[in-house]
Write a protein that binds this DNA or RNA. Structure first.
Lengths: 216, 216
DNA sequence: CCTAACAATTAGGTATACCTAATAAAATAC
DNA sequence: GTATTTTATTAGGTATACCTAATTGTTAGG
């Protein structure tokens, strides 16, 4: 019984991400996220449970402490890779996700350390998500979706929950990137768009899009 | 029939390296190099042949043009990774081989380009081996092993054919690294050591060790 | 020339991770 | 409270890449 480490890391990472919105993660949701069939996931989850990386109840799948620890390490490597790609190799923020998905399984703890050191221990990835530290400690800022702001509210963009390159390019073209200040001018009723002001320009932003942008 | 790309790359890379010393590469030699059993290699070679990546005659295995092209791309990614690790992330030359062995399968053509660009299109890896260019063109300098120099001959170190960290540390501690000038003071008879002079200091160097150091 | 040694392959078998189709269990609808 | 839908699992099967043991083939010795 030999472990396919990248596969295991992929599962744990997905579970970690999904359990932020749905606590015990359902196998169907996990299957959808990993683009695998539900039975494949069912089976693999059993194996992860036998390795004590997850606990599997009727309600769904939860990470054990060890599973969570591995997931956070993978996320750390992913986000550090993204920073390496943008800050040192000159990639744009919409180009780094897929690349980092491969790098995160190929990076040793030593390389992880060196990247962090070379970049001055960055606190977030290019999309604003926090990078867990070596001990898995993850500082989460209190944020809310831009879509929840009312007219004349202001906020500073903390992070953008989006991976699609096209959408990220679009957001960057509007200047909607971390650390930028946004002011809501008007909120259309019945789920209509928000009119926002970013560095002097005004844009209409769909609710769906605005909900991906987290502000403080 | 789905391809396990990293595995295929691993095989092609090994064949490429081995065919520099032994033209049609024997399966047993390949098995030894890949640390796999001969039957496993036999089988895999058949698959590579069916994909037209190698040709398989009685004498052994040869890369096809396509196989060679892939192998060179992998080697390019490996050596560029090593340069990234030393030049940007601060690794020592003895620490980069294993790391690069994993990175070479995780790097996209875009990342390959960016690394090359960020480093000013380096011509060699930290051990002095040439980095194939994007079109697979590889500039090989005419070199000979240090062990072939006679007393009072001088040479400039071009490359070091060695991967073992301990040996690399040792050589670096003597200053035996690429671009350094070495003078042979004395050659002991019957395969005995060479007495060499490197930046003012004299050392005795075993023939085996000296044969790994290529000079021009 | 025949035989010992070595090289390579075939035969047969394992483990992993995936799949589809069928079934069982749970949640929701009415 | 039963029927329908959704969710999860079992059953059965595929492909890949590895293994050991047995066999064939080739090279070199005597």
């Amino acid at each position: 019984m030999e472990a396919d480490t990248p596969r295991i890391e992929e599962y744990l990472e997905s579970i970690y991400k999904l359990q932020q919105e749905q606590h015990p993660v359902s196998t169907s949701r996990l299957a959808e996220h990993l683009k695998l069939s539900p039975p494949s996931v069912s089976e693999m989850v059993k194996k992860l449970a036998s390795k004590e990386l997850v606990s599997h109840t009727e309600k769904g799948v939860c990470l054990t402490e060890e599973g969570k620890s591995i997931a956070k390490k993978v996320i750390r490597r992913h986000r550090l890779s993204e920073r390496l790609l943008t800050d040192i190799l000159g990639f744009k923020w919409d180009e780094v996700h897929d690349e980092a998905c491969r790098l995160e399984h190929a990076i040793s703890p030593e390389m992880e350390d060196r990247i962090a050191e070379s970049l001055g221990n960055p606190k977030t990835c290019p999309h604003g998500h926090p990078i867990p530290d070596k001990d898995g400690i993850l500082i989460k800022e209190k944020v809310k979706p831009l879509s929840e702001l009312k007219a004349s509210d202001k906020g500073i963009i903390v992070s953008v929950f989006e991976e699609d390159p096209k959408m990220l390019q679009y957001l960057a073209s509007l200047g909607l990137i971390p650390d930028v200040c946004v002011r809501v001018e008007e909120v259309a009723p019945f789920g209509g768009p928000l009119i926002v002001c970013v560095s002097g320009s005004r844009y209409a932003l769909g609710r769906e899009v605005a909900s991906m942008i987290k502000v403080k």
